[in-house]
Design a protein around this nucleic acid. Sequence first.
DNA 1: TTGAAAGCGCTAACAT
DNA 2: ATGTTAGCGCTTTCAA
Lengths: 337, 337
Amino acid sequence: MAVTLHDVARVAGVSIKTVSNVINNFEHIRPATRAKVLLAIDELGYRPNLSARSLRSGRSGVIGLVVPEFSLSYFAELADAVIKAAERHGQVVQIEQTNGDRARELEVLSSPRIQFSDGVLFSPLGMSNDDADALTVPYPLVLLGERIFGGPVDHVTMRNVEAARAATEHLIATGRRRIAVVGAHEGEIIGSAGLRLRGYREALEAAGIPFDPDIIVNTTLWHRSNGATAMRELLATGAQFDAVFGLNDTLALGAMRALQEAGLRVPHDVAVIGFDDLDEARYSLPTLTTVDPGRTEIAETAVRVLLERIQGAQPDAAPVEYLANFSIVERESTAIS
Amino acid sequence: MAVTLHDVARVAGVSIKTVSNVINNFEHIRPATRAKVLLAIDELGYRPNLSARSLRSGRSGVIGLVVPEFSLSYFAELADAVIKAAERHGQVVQIEQTNGDRARELEVLSSPRIQFSDGVLFSPLGMSNDDADALTVPYPLVLLGERIFGGPVDHVTMRNVEAARAATEHLIATGRRRIAVVGAHEGEIIGSAGLRLRGYREALEAAGIPFDPDIIVNTTLWHRSNGATAMRELLATGAQFDAVFGLNDTLALGAMRALQEAGLRVPHDVAVIGFDDLDEARYSLPTLTTVDPGRTEIAETAVRVLLERIQGAQPDAAPVEYLANFSIVERESTAIS
DNA sequence: TTGAAAGCGCTAACAT
DNA sequence: ATGTTAGCGCTTTCAA
């Protein structure tokens, strides 16, 4: 059987409370007592039972992270940042993948699977603003991403419109006028695609460049393959363009690949910009100019905000929206040639 | 306060045991009783307290996954596969990152942080065979990777030597004779680098090609940047070669990038092969020939083996070593030109 | 088929 | 500075 506090107390010749005090680093313990207890712990190989601790204290030290899937590199890098931020606060992260499927996202929210955690960071991809009510759950929840705004919970996200506008302005500033977009979602207003397209249009308008739907290509998923396919389709239409805004980096990299396949030079013939600043964007050929959306800041803020809710200083405080700072990372794919 | 079994029992007018039976899907419950209970659960919004359940039953339904970090794409894709496999068995995955740091790896093994889980999948990068004793822990542990062999626990890994040999043979079969290696670890015998280099040497020997240390480049970490840097160094030495074996895909992609930067054409001047079959290898320019090391099979086997140990049918069964099947995925980077 | 009661290992309130 | 004790919510004998 497992070694318990009682065993340690017996061997150390103290009470169970004293052992608990030592384990939890309480003050006011005589050094000699502490030493005795530590010796007994070591001798018996005692390890606290976290289930019991959690049952009693109502706190598990675990936070849940619900994301679409790690094969989307953005979420792998986000998870990396969240785990590191959580660790700094002594928290462990439990992960649930939804594949961006709305039904699964809704199900996970009420599933007991997530119930070990003290709170959840939730990054939906399939749910929309209409589902905002489902975010009212009996545990602390912090929303990530840009599928739902104005919901009943704290929300940490990026400046999609402004960042996309800045990305487009960067292309315009380097002399491009016919800027294709890869990854749009027809009719979407809220959501990464809709917001980023809005930023794009704002930049065009400010520069007096007409919007041309013929160089906007839709894709459903934002995988590399979709970016390549979309670009091949666009090239097949014979449309003219001198730049491409990939609504994320994987799309941009896929599109860049298709451009080069077709014998076009990047950035000489066509400039390419992405969005996300994946590690990978630094090692493509050419290296990819992109938007750093503040992923680390998002992860750190989200963890901090969630822990504040868990600690419950102000349980009824109104939901807050946090926006991370972005920056344009200039690389070769948009250099002036 | 949270709704408990007692509340449900009271509202449903049955005993707590009956409620428990319904929740755990026991047989022999009168449909009417079940309906009453389900109604009460719904009405009160009851959700089971997993800490209590776990304390009582000794099983949490959580498995731990300890990996270096997700910014190494291989581990992101491995985690994806593990989470999906665990889900099929109704298990949740808790993740711990070690950054491949030996001290942290050793620490995690004995940390209470991991103690919520019923068992752990452990993928070290810093530990070596000398640390095998540290794997003797008081919970089920399944070892992944190729840092430790013959340890005291079940081990699921890939056929490194055979796969690397097959990769090298593929290059030789396409007419290459001077095959550089990127990512070697000087003097390593066990470990991905050591094993893969051994497979490489076996293939050379079988083909009667002399081994030339001048075209073997060491790198510590296997990030894209290291592959690019290593290749630039190799080019700077003036050494001649007509192919590159990147000991993983990110190294190969980085190396390919440096080759192209230097004006060399892939595969025309230099063929490139990687190892891992990352999603990304399908969308580079040119697409990357690589080894599929059986990642999905590894994840599924590891989860299955761990759960068998947790269920403890044969607690004292001798440790087993499982080897996944590999295959060469031929793409453009090694096409005959 | 359902009920009563014990107790998993721990923390926290209270006592000394 | 340390000891005593109740009880977190659940599963699990054992009884009925």
